[in-house]
């Protein structure tokens, strides 16, 4: 029963208030992109056992999507942040490194 702090409304949101949205920071490939890129975008996932960047929507709260860095093996949450980013912000990376010194972004 996960709990995340929604970066928009500041509420410590229960899992039942939230909708999971899969991996974060996917780059969209539209018409004209290669088969490789499109397959990668839609289907291929690192499925990391460990640090994972993912999307959540505070659907039964403020309705906003946000992103989270979470360990899929321990369920530790390193931080939540705006969905309007293309990569994890520096403070999130720092927070992860503080807890997982061996981790490096894929």
């Amino acid at each position: 029963m996960l709990i995340f702090t929604c970066p928009y409304c500041g509420i410590a949101a229960e899992e039942t208030e939230l909708t999971p949205g899969g991996e974060a920071h996917l780059k969209r490939y539209g018409p004209g992109s290669s088969d490789d890129d499109f397959e990668e975008y839609l289907f291929l996932r690192p499925n990391a056992k460990g640090v994972h960047f993912e999307r959540w929507r505070h659907s039964h709260g403020c309705g906003k999507w946000f992103l989270a860095a979470r360990d899929t093996a321990t369920l530790e949450v390193f931080g939540t942040y705006s969905a309007q980013t293309t990569e994890p912000p520096a403070e999130i990376v720092t927070a992860i490194r503080a807890k997982r010194p061996d981790w490096s972004p894929a």
Binding site: G21, R28, R55, R57, S59, G63, K64, W65, A83, Q84
Partner: peptide, 13 residues
């Protein structure tokens, strides 16, 4: 509606 919000918030913000 969720689909719309997803694209608006996460892609074309």
């Amino acid at each position: 509606h969720a689909h719309m919000e997803d694209w608006l918030q996460c892609e074309w913000w």
